[in-house]
Simulated assay, not measured.
Amino acid sequence: MRINKFIANSGFTSRRKADDLIIQGRVKINGQTIYEPGIQVVDGDKVEVEGKLLTIEKKFYIKLYKPVGFITSNFDPYNELDLNDLLDIDKRFFAAGRLDKDSEGLLIITNDGEFTNNLIHPKFKLDKEYIVKIDRKLRASQEKKFEKGLDIGNGEKTSDAKLEYLGNNTYSVIIHQGFNRQIRRMFKVLGARVIELKRIRIGKIFLGDLKEKEYKYFSKDELKFVDEMIR
């Protein structure tokens, strides 16, 4: 296994950042500093990054239905409801992407740093789909503006999006960016307020029939998506 992949699989950092650490001379194999990302690691080798001895942990991937009222964190100093209140996992983990406290739906939970970095990286333009209820129906001209992109403040402008009206002031929204509270801010620019927001898809991973607070490990088919993202 290549040294950069070993570092990524250990959960220390992504393969791309591992390359930088290696070139900077911050990685050792069996006590010897190495500078080539292509060097192979074999069974029995001791790999250190910045003095920390690394081991490979088994990767896992979970889809979770986060209810409203929970923050997307597994450490909260203010004792809010967080991911530890939803998941019974005796391992290090984190959420791949954000979902604000007032929103619900699909979260991907993992210990795979490389997969997480790729999942949220803008270059992949990964679709994220939401069901959003607002306080009124947009005009046709506003729907077009939503889809073409909006200035939502703080120097942030959204790229193209897909919007489909489902009835009862409810829309299907597909975006591939991840600005903080992006969808709420987009509707606010158009004078509408979000009442309910639920994420139902990230890439090829669907919320499916999960109910609030339920979670499942990825199926074999869903694990193929992981392979696509880290290939």
Rank of each mutant, 00 (worst) to 15 (best):
A8D: 15
S10Q: 04
S10C: 02
S14W: 03
R16I: 13
K17Q: 08
D20C: 06
N30I: 13
Q32P: 05
T33M: 07
E36T: 14
Q40F: 08
D43Q: 14
G44V: 00
D45T: 04
V47F: 02
V47C: 06
G51P: 09
Y61F: 11
I62K: 03
K63H: 08
Y65V: 04
Y65D: 04
S73C: 10
F75G: 08
D76N: 07
N79E: 14
D82P: 09
R92H: 13
A96C: 02
D102M: 07
S103W: 07
E104L: 11
E104D: 11
N118P: 07
H121S: 03
F124N: 15
K125L: 12
K128H: 06
K133E: 00
K133Y: 09
K144Q: 14
K144P: 01
K145S: 05
K148Q: 15
N154F: 15
N154P: 08
A161Y: 06
A161D: 03
K162N: 11
K162D: 00
Y165R: 11
N168D: 14
H176A: 12
Q177S: 12
R181V: 09
Q182E: 14
Q182S: 07
K188F: 05
L197H: 08
I200H: 04
R201Y: 02
L210M: 01
K211R: 11
E214Y: 04
K216W: 02
K224N: 10
V226C: 07
D227K: 14
M229G: 03
